[in-house]
Amino acid sequence: MTDPTYPAFPVITLIGFVAVLIPLPWHFQAWNSGTCLYMIWTALSSLVLFVNSVIWQDNAENVAPIWCDISSRFMVGFAVALPAASLCINRRLYLLTSVQSVTITREDKRRAVITDLCIGLGIPVIQMLLPPHPDTALGHRFNIYEGIGCYPFTFNTTLAYPLVVVWPLVIGLISSGYCFLTLRTFLQRRVDFSSITSANSALTVNRYFRLMAIAMTDVVITVPISAVGIYLGLTASVVSPWRGWADAHFDYSKVELVPAVLWRANRLNEVSLELTRWSTPFSAFVFFIFFGFALEARKHYRMMYVVALKAIAHVLPAPLSAAVTRCVRLFH
């Protein structure tokens, strides 16, 4: 069955992969660990989805089992990675807004980065480490959907919800709480806000509001989608009773191959799968909208453009190389 989103999806996903990484260097310099985690997770997910959409564009064969083991486990972690990164951003903004002293030391920054890594990296990694073990809620190895590629399969039993399913919602709700506290504290201390940002050379007023906007956007998306997913899992499909590990993981090595004509025949299943995979390029472009046009990002675009032109000039004939070199000078 022809994929109506091909080649649009891999092209858009690849562009999102590049776009979300462009502002990364100056966020590293600014010690914005939560934002860096958001960019890195989104970029990695975009790359995984790009590869999957190309390899399994017109088939559902198990042609790359090792890649599927890795990518399906990564997707389990990515389900909580963006909410966790948004939690890091909202938590950092709240601490900046509510801090009593405007002096932020290097030690404070180091502790903040360690905490962010524990949340934004530690939680997803723990989730990714669950699938290889038989004591988890994953019913079999993975599924392969034609047009989508490898996909983790979670056995719909009561144990799956506390172990895997509820975590994006839980993290999203905690992040919502920090978001509310940040807004409330900001309104209470808006007179002192300029002194707070001036004490942090890496944080400007515009950057603060862009960070708040991206974190709030992710919360607004994560909470309702996670809640609806849990509701559908509990009501639209059968929740199997827990009969022990042997029953839940019978034939665990099985790989289910699903042609597009089958998974698209179920409208609810189709919407769920498409919504899940399109959320990644959407997140990449939302981030780019908020940060891709900032002054720092434009400087990096110019640097990358100059580097690319110089590389091209080296392989072109002399007349064309001279013309490209003149273009390079215009950007200096």
Rank of each mutant, 00 (worst) to 15 (best):
G122T: 00
H140G: 12
T185P: 06
S175C: 10
N143L: 13
V191G: 12
L121G: 10
P134H: 06
L129W: 03
F155R: 04
R111L: 13
D116R: 00
P162C: 08
I126P: 12
M128V: 06
G172D: 09
G120A: 10
R190Y: 12
P168T: 03
P131M: 00
D108I: 09
T185C: 10
L173D: 08
D135A: 08
Y145S: 03
G149E: 11
Q188D: 14
V113A: 15
H140M: 13
G120W: 00
V125D: 06
C179T: 04
R141P: 03
P132H: 04
L159M: 11
C179W: 02
T115W: 12
T185F: 10
L138F: 15
V191T: 05
N143V: 10
G139S: 03
V166Q: 05
I144A: 09
P124D: 02
G177Q: 02
R184E: 13
H133T: 01
F186Q: 06
N143E: 15
Q188N: 14
I171F: 06
T182Y: 12
L173M: 15
G139H: 04
V125T: 01
L183D: 10
C118E: 12
G120P: 10
R110N: 09
L187K: 07
M128L: 11
L181P: 10
I174G: 09
L129I: 00
F155Q: 03
Y145K: 08
H140N: 07
L181R: 11
I123K: 01
G122M: 09
H133Q: 11
G172P: 15
E146N: 05
P168D: 01
T185S: 10
D192A: 14
A160E: 03
A160C: 12
I114F: 05
D116A: 15
S194L: 14
E146R: 06
H140I: 09
I126G: 11
C150I: 07
P152R: 01
V113I: 14
S175A: 05
S194C: 13
N143D: 08
G122R: 04
N156P: 00
P152H: 03
F142R: 04
N143S: 14
I114R: 07
K109H: 10
E146P: 07
L130E: 13
A137T: 04
N156I: 01
F186P: 09
P152C: 07
D108Q: 04
I123G: 12
L181W: 14
I174Y: 03
S194G: 11
I123F: 07
A137R: 06
A112F: 08
S175Q: 03
R189A: 12
P124F: 02
L129G: 08
R189F: 11
F153V: 01
D116K: 03
G122K: 03
F155V: 01
I171H: 04
L130H: 09
G120H: 02
G149F: 10
F142E: 04
Q127I: 00
D116Q: 04
L117I: 00
S176M: 14
T136F: 12
A112E: 06
